[in-house]
Amino acid sequence: MLSQTVRPREITLDHHALTMAMAEPEAPFSDAPVYAPEAAGVLLLLALLSPREPKEPKDL
């Protein structure tokens, strides 16, 4: 039984720490989306679609 294990007077809860832990403020700094060319995928798509530069023609 819990009351046999732990006696009320043995426990002290830190009021300040408890209040702080319960506050749960929002994140102080934002990590909102910014320009990220690596995330766009356009460059990759172009690389896949465009043919390579034509080489010099071989001697006939």
Binding site: T5, I11, L13
Partner: peptide, 21 residues
């Protein structure tokens, strides 16, 4: 949660966690 408090090294911390929860 009672079992958690009973088995906790620091019952005070366990009770604080319950209060916060």
């Amino acid at each position: 949660v009672a079992a958690h408090v009973e088995s906790a090294q620091d019952p005070g911390a366990a009770l604080a966690a319950i209060r916060i929860l």
